[in-house]
Each structure stands twice: as structure tokens, then as C-alpha cells.
Computed example of a mutant assay.
Amino acid sequence: MYKFEEALWDKGFKYIAGTDEVGRGPLAGPLVACAVILNPKNPIKGLNDSKQLSAKKRQILKLEIEEKALAIKYVFIDEKTIDKINIYQASKLGMLEAIKQLDIEPDYILSDAMPLKEANLPFDAIIKGDTLSASIAAASIIAKEIRDDYMIKMSKKYPGYDFENNKGYPTKKHVEALKNIGLCDIHRLTYKPVKDILEKQLSLWE
């Protein structure tokens, strides 16, 4: 998991920021992007794509990343922005913002498949980067845990959608709740089936 980082450290790069986002697919809630600069002198074992780790393992790794990383920053891109600029641009915006807000300025970026030339830094956009790079995996773990916690809070504010379990993703229970309860303030209006339900409601009012 450290092969990309080790190659760059050997070339003299000191602060390598790995960046990733979580929340492209949900019908509700924000996208969370994160950037992490790991410490070459304090490696973390067991890093992997957040989706391939159990919740318990992610929580343990999150604490270790927070303890050992040189810098961490995460940002929320809300559902209204996602609807306005689309999910691809929202992902890019989130990653760029997280990198910009790091307390240490990176000298190289490793991203999960996202070209980030706007950062004006050398970068590699690595396909399936969260399974190949420790820095990107660390960013995906932080982003996933932050977003999951947020959606659990939202489940109390907007009961009935099962956000505490589905985290906004389109499960059967979530889609049924959409049809029965209607939309809430954190639904993404450009996403099917939310868009279909909204159009149906609007047609009834006409």
C-alpha cells in the first residue's frame, strides 16, 4: 500500500497528500472529501479502501490515522451544490478544497482517479487508488467515517428513511420511504428516483 508513497519519498518529495471522497451514489446527504498527509516515519498497517473494511476496523484505523498523520482535512459538499454542479464536479471541488485547507502544504498529490491539475501541484490520478495507495486509503477511511456519523445524526432529524442504516444510499427501505413520506431537505433533487418523485408531485400540483 505504500509503493506510490515510497517511490515519491525516494525522489525527494516530502509531503504527499492522498485524497478521496465518499458519497457519490447516495440519494441524500452530502459528499465528504478528505486529504491526508501520512508520516513516512510512522506507517499505519491495514489501510485499505474504506468499503472493504468492517465498521469496527474503520473506526480503529481512523483513530490511528488521526494520531499518526502529519495533516488531515475533510470538507462537506452539500446536496444543493451537488445538484447545481453535478457529482463529478462536486467530487473534484471537495478534493481540491480539502487539499487547500491542509495545515501543511503538500508537494505531491495522489488522488483516487480524479485529475487535479487545478491544484497546481504534481499529481497522480490512480484508478482504484483507495486499494493501491496508503494515503488515498487513509483519506477514504476518514471521509467514510465522517459521512456515516453525519447521516446517523440526520436519521434523528429526518426519521423514517432509515438513514442510520443506509446512509442515504438507495436501499429498498429508503426508496419505499421516499414514495410514502416524500422528500426531505437533504435529498438530491437531480438523482433518480428522487427526481421522478419530485416531478410526479409537481405534476399533481399543476
Rank of each mutant, 00 (worst) to 15 (best):
N166H: 09
I16G: 00
K62L: 14
P43M: 03
Y108F: 15
D185K: 15
P106V: 04
K117L: 13
S91H: 10
A113Y: 13
K144S: 09
Q52S: 12
T171C: 07
K144F: 02
V194R: 01
D107E: 15
V32Q: 05
C184E: 12
T19M: 08
M1W: 06
K56Y: 12
K157W: 05
K167L: 10
D103Y: 04
T190Y: 01
D49A: 08
I186P: 01
D185I: 08
N48L: 10
K172W: 00
I146F: 01
G129P: 09
D78E: 15
G94D: 02
Q101W: 05
K73D: 13
G182W: 09
G12A: 10
D10V: 00
K51V: 11
P106D: 04
P170Y: 02
L121F: 07
L63N: 11
Q89I: 03
K100H: 14
K117Q: 11
K45D: 13
I186E: 01
F4K: 06
D83F: 14
P106M: 10
T190E: 05
Q201M: 13
E176I: 14
L132I: 08
V22T: 12
A69C: 05
S135Y: 01
K117Y: 10
V36T: 06
G12D: 09
S50D: 02
A33I: 06
M95F: 11
E21H: 05
Y191P: 08
E145N: 15
G18H: 06
L53Y: 11
M1I: 01
D107P: 12
K3Y: 12
Q52H: 14
R24M: 07
K80N: 12
K117F: 12
I104Q: 08
I77Y: 02
F4Q: 14
F163S: 05
I136G: 00
L183R: 08
K100E: 15
A35N: 09
